[in-house]
Design a protein around this nucleic acid. Structure first.
Lengths: 219, 219
DNA sequence: CCTACCGATCGGTAGG
DNA sequence: CCTACCGATCGGTAGG
């Protein structure tokens, strides 16, 4: 088990309890993956809570019981860590989205599933990754931003036929492109106010969003 | 006219073109107000573009042709500058909102005016102040955050009777509290994608939002 | 509002 | 992954 150094007591060096002499060879590969994942999760949590610029690589190292220079053994720069958080977050979101859609859904059911899956991505396990992407993209390089933008386009593309078909049947009363922007805003903004106290569950939230956006069929 | 130092060439000290010997006495009061306002506007623009933590007080000083220590003559700390930006932004938003509402509006018209006023606040003149508030509140102290939260509650309170009345007539199909959160999200998120190229005008945007959220009267 | 400056912190690296 | 360290930058201040 790893003892976390208290980030609020800067003078104290991190206490490292991992034994130095244990056998390394056979577990090397898996260990490296684990340490990398620990760094990613700690970085995501700190980037979300304090922001990218206000989080030091020392904070991240301390959160996983490493010394200050060690994160650079796993990531070549702080920006690379940020990119990895966003990349991993988007790939998980894409996978979740793909498995949410069912073959015989009508457009209304499809939108319901997309919204529910989106809320899962924002508020379910691993919930820090996508908020970091939503709020810290400014700190990416142009090249990195382009990489993330590609994944975002893939994610958004899945929504468009669903939205267009709801527009065609009069259930959405706005151009599909604008509808997507406004709906994503409504959903994404929930990271500002939704909390685990959960006055509303994610299911209830999904129903509420559907009721707000989707009109009854007819003129 | 003020010559802006290039923020990307750190070694060069800011070039100050203001004449040193001009009469000061009679204009002192107005000048101080002007300099303070210049600092606020420059800070808002930089805080929005680069984020609070990534903006140095030197950046802000250079943007208005001051030397590095001088902003502290006008504001006692960088955080005080941030607070002033948000406070000024919210007071302007409240004033704009108050003047937008007309006495004999029906609920639908009232919501239209509130949304249009909100888009003005987000994208009209002085457009940096509120986005800074929306995205940098994390950097406020608890006391400062409480001060801004009070203004936000006042701002939100104006929407509630309008939303409740639309719920009562079946034109909004969600609890008024949740409707406000989702609608604010849709509107606020536009700071991420709306640009001056204006494929859609603010009027068109307002109509689109109304069409998305507000249903026809009836069961 | 400028000058000159301080202590603290930061991202990153060499070498093991 | 640790040790020891560097150069750069930052918020802020004294004194004028």
């Amino acid at each position: 088990m790893i003892v976390r150094a208290l980030a609020t007591v800067p003078p104290a060096p991190p206490v490292v309890k991992r034994s130095r002499g244990r056998p390394r060879k056979t577990l090397d590969e898996r260990d490296e993956g684990n340490r990398r994942q620990e760094l990613l999760r700690a970085a995501a949590r700190l980037f979300r809570r304090k922001g990218f610029d206000a989080t030091s690589t020392r904070d991240i190292a301390a959160a996983v019981g490493m010394h200050s220079g060690s994160p650079f053994y796993h990531f070549k720069s702080k920006a690379a860590l940020l990119y990895a958080v966003m990349d991993e977050g988007m790939r998980a979101a894409l996978a979740r989205q793909a498995s949410a859609l069912q073959p015989h859904d009508d457009p209304r059911q499809a939108l319901h599933r997309l919204i529910r899956s989106h809320f899962d991505t924002l508020h379910g396990p691993g919930r820090d990754f996508i908020p970091v992407m939503l709020y810290e993209s400014r700190s990416l390089s142009a090249r990195q931003r382009a990489g993330i933008a590609k994944l975002q386009r893939d994610y958004e593309a899945v929504w468009m036929p669903v939205l267009r078909s709801l527009v065609a049947s009069g259930r959405l009363r706005v151009d599909a492109h604008l509808a997507r922007l406004l709906i994503f805003g409504a959903l994404n903004w929930s990271v500002q106010w939704f909390d685990a106290k959960k006055r509303a569950s994610l299911d209830e939230l999904t129903d509420a969003a559907m009721a707000l956006f989707v009109h009854e069929e007819s003129a």
